[in-house]
Amino acid sequence: MNMEDADHRIENTAAGCTMTGVLRLATPGAYERIFNPIHDAMIACKTTYVVDIRGLNFMNSSGITALSRLVLAARKLDLPLRILGAESIAWQRKTITSLRRLHTLLTVDIQDTPAS
């Protein structure tokens, strides 16, 4: 029986990505494969890159580490970054806002409405 279906989804566009579901991979390194396309897109991005996590219910600390590495990568690229979070998801409201200090061009938007 295979119950280990992927429980997350990451959609990439040129101007941003949307993460939904649950991300609890074992190590920060395990996030690299799924975050590499985001990193590549950020390098190519000419405007503000948007990371939408409003539909991401859970992320473990390895994921926070991986996400913060994306912020550091944007800082290195001097790229404006916007993270969209949901007010109704406790860890987002609390933890993600702290990432602001990593990058002056980062805005964290915690919104009332959950992702549709």
């Binding site: 295979n2 280990e4 992927a6 074992a26 190590t27 390194g29 395990a30 494969r33």
Partner: peptide, 14 residues
């Protein structure tokens, strides 16, 4: 190294 039945990724040690 970790193992998995389906989420396999040699780049991240699974």
């Amino acid at each position: 190294i970790l193992f998995s039945n389906d989420i396999v990724d040699l780049n991240s040690g699974i």
